[in-house]
């Protein structure tokens, strides 16, 4: 998992590096076509941070062998991840309704590319969490596969860390 995460770090840092170089060469940023709502972005950041905490609480419940609590915290984590994606979907819809698309200018190309790749990772994390949630259905499954919760947690925290950097870059700078 750590080697996979290292490759993911390089993937996102490559994208972010390209964004920084483009940002520095364009003084008018994001341009006159439109702006992002900082408070929606901040709320979505808080949602992801909450989901990171809930998966930590799922892991703590797993160490206590409290499967019922593991189930609750994992469901909450997946739900918060879904909220993040729904909010992102509304943001996309608002931009599309104002005819802002990836080809509008270089900022919006970067915005849609970075956020879409991140959203795909969030979706992957939600699926991973739901798979681990399914293991809680039977104690025998949990005994043999419960350790995957730790891997799901590592992946989810990685997704959170990526957004922690994307949010200020896209919404605040």
């Amino acid at each position: 998992m750590w080697v996979f995460l290292a490759s993911e770090v390089m993937f996102f840092t490559g994208l972010i590096g390209a964004y920084v170089v483009l940002r520095m060469s364009h003084p008018a940023w994001p341009g006159s076509e439109g702006h992002l709502n900082v408070w929606i972005g901040a709320c979505n950041t808080l949602v992801l941070i909450c989901s990171s905490t809930t998966i930590v609480l799922a892991l703590a419940a797993s160490e206590r062998r409290d499967l019922s609590a593991v189930r609750t915290w994992l469901l909450l984590t997946a739900a918060l991840g879904s909220v993040f994606l729904v909010v992102k979907g509304f943001e996309y819809a608002a931009k599309f309704s104002h005819h802002i698309v990836p080809s509008t200018n270089v900022f919006w190309s970067c915005y849609f590319a970075l956020t879409a790749f991140h959203a795909l990772h969030v979706l992957g994390g939600i699926v991973f969490n739901l798979v681990v949630l399914a293991y809680t259905g039977r104690p025998a499954w949990w005994a043999s596969r419960g350790r995957r919760l730790e891997l799901a947690g590592l992946y989810w925290h990685f997704v959170d860390i990526v957004w922690i950097f994307l949010f200020p870059m896209l919404y605040l700078f």
């Binding site: 750590w2 995460l5 490759s7 770090v9 390089m10």
Partner: peptide, 10 residues
Amino acid sequence: FVALVPFLLI
């Protein structure tokens, strides 16, 4: 080390 190497490379 595994976590930090990508940051150093970038």
